[in-house]
Design a protein around this nucleic acid. Structure first.
Lengths: 223, 223
DNA sequence: TAGATTGTTAATCGATTAACAATC
DNA sequence: TAGATTGTTAATCGATTAACAATC
């Protein structure tokens, strides 16, 4: 099932079933619903109302019902949405039902924290390898993932169909590592450093920015 | 200057100079411009065009010029914006020129990574204390910040005017720590765990969700 | 002058919200 | 039945974009 999506893409297929591409806004919101739903499921919740989803996502409840009803009648009036089935529906819509292999660069504090947590695994992202320039770390394991030598990067990316690279290295090393990831064929870079990265147009960089999020939250507290 | 803002707020003042509150969208975008500008400044850039800002933020360049021109004529035609002065202008608009004291909870891998990095310091957030339930860690220093005993939390929050608490603890401990932070008087919680947190209505929770961001980026890669 | 880039307009599109009938 | 919550409409508001004169 899930491999088909990747296979289709490789084959140049664009229309994968449901027709048109989602708008940026809808895709972003569906992703957030999914996060809350997965967590709610972990907590043993069977059903959830649009109102509850609104509280956790800070998205208006009417907007949530509107977004969901655009794809089908997933809810039950007077009850809410079944958590289980809604997770599956949204995954189907986002084409994220499958497993995706990712690589992690940097085995310092941050890299270890990421490797040991299940934040990525919970959403279908499997870390297949950690890379670090420090030879002493090569061969060690963090959270069941082995640290590999940098030289293995192209092989791993190629053989394991890796599309995403997570960058957990100091700012000074970020551009160099990004270049290596691009050369190896990675198409999405998740940047935990603050460095502004230069990449070719077919590569997407997403920079994590907790302080910016905080600034934003603080503005609304201060006003 | 900057302390006045906080002081005003404490005194219940709402109108701080420029008049109306920004819309959610404008505030979010200005925060992102600021992040890129600060980084660009570090890299020694003097001026930046709306086109360059667009590349780094993924926000349309017309939108950027529009956002900025709403507050004044900050740019120079044919040249772009001066990085230095634009940083100051946006900080003024966002009322974030000052320093804000924050506390960090959790001195594990993630907590140490946060304490040692300057991602928060660069944006005017100073970590005044780290807390951890593990007594062995109390008294140790990470990145010039000392680990305190949990019992000191209320005092630190009160004496240092702490509004923001950063949560870098395992999911299982997150709700308990959130409760402590709320009791101590923290108003904004930055949650790095996946736990869905229950807080009073006057407290804002922001949950970090790298996997969700990735899901979203991947959707646009797959389609 | 020539090239670049801002500031601004106008037109379109999508997001947001309140309200409420349908129905579990 | 009574209460709750969805699905949907209609009306408004803000975001987005192309285009271009102004001007550095």
């Amino acid at each position: 099932m899930s491999e088909d999506v990747v296979a289709d893409r490789t084959a140049g297929e664009l229309s994968l079933g449901d027709g048109d591409r989602l708008s940026l806004g809808v895709a972003a919101r569906l992703s957030r619903y999914l996060q809350v739903l997965i967590q709610a499921r972990k907590m043993g919740k069977d059903t959830i109302s649009s109102q509850e989803l609104a509280e956790y996502t800070h998205i208006n409840s009417t907007q949530i019902r509107r977004d969901l009803s655009g794809f089908g009648k997933f809810g039950k009036r007077g009850v809410g949405y079944r958590v289980d089935s809604l997770v599956e529906e949204i995954r189907r819509i986002l084409r994220s039902s499958g497993q995706h292999n990712i690589v992690l660069f940097g085995a310092g504090n941050l890299g270890q924290a990421i490797a040991s947590s299940d934040i990525f695994a919970d959403h279908g992202f499997q870390i297949v390898a950690i890379f670090d320039v420090e030879p002493k770390l090569v061969g060690r394991n963090f959270g069941e993932v082995e640290v590999h030598d940098v030289a293995d990067l192209p092989t791993v990316v190629d053989e394991q169909d890796v599309v995403v690279g997570v960058l957990a290295v100091p700012s000074g090393a970020a551009q160099d590592v990004a270049d290596r990831l691009v050369d190896a064929g990675v198409k999405i870079i998740f940047n935990y450093s603050e460095q502004l990265l230069q990449v070719p147009p077919d590569v997407t960089v997403h920079t994590s920015s907790p302080a910016v999020d905080l600034l934003y939250a603080l503005y609304f507290y201060l006003t």
